[in-house]
Amino acid sequence: MPRFLKILVRNLLKGPATDPFPFQEAFTPDRLRGRVVLNPDLCLGCGICRHVCPGEAIRLEPDEGRTGYSFSIWHNTCALCGSCRHFCPTGAITLNADWHGAHPQTDKYRHAEHHFVPYLRCAGCGAPLRPLPPGIAARLYAHSPLDMTQVVKLCPDCRLTATAKREGERYGTTANPG
């Protein structure tokens, strides 16, 4: 007991160990997994986040006119495991440290984040397309002499055709596909 008395006195002198929340902000580290957030500009619509999500908290759905797709995250079935962030190839999904997720029961279906992610049209054929985010395209094409701003506006088929044409011109043959 005397051994512990020393600690007891020390702890008494230190005062309360708890944060006086809500009168003062509580300890919240930057990495706290508080809420899943999507940056639609970086989303490619690949759906890996939906595949790995253990709680089926992510929904992707193309709209009828194929002008884009809706992307929804329902926080109330999200386990905050961060798998979506881990597997997202473009860093479009992040988790912020906002843990203030309490809401009335009546709002449970509204505690969600909805986005509409528009397709661009392929500069070649007009097919719907999600362009590579500029940052990633810049990294991918860093050592390429190509103008990547044009390349990212093409769908895979048109990119293939463009490459064939370009290579053909480089080697002096005429591309004559038909």
């Binding site: 089926e56 929804s72 329902w74 079935t77 279906y109 969600a112 909805h114």
Partner: peptide, 23 residues
């Protein structure tokens, strides 16, 4: 599937009340 069934998602989408303005 232990979590977000079709039924629950229908309710979430019903609450969505229209898409956000397109950027």
């Amino acid at each position: 599937h232990s979590a977000g069934s079709k039924d629950l998602w229908e309710r979430v989408m019903a609450e969505k009340a229209g898409l956000l303005p397109r950027p």
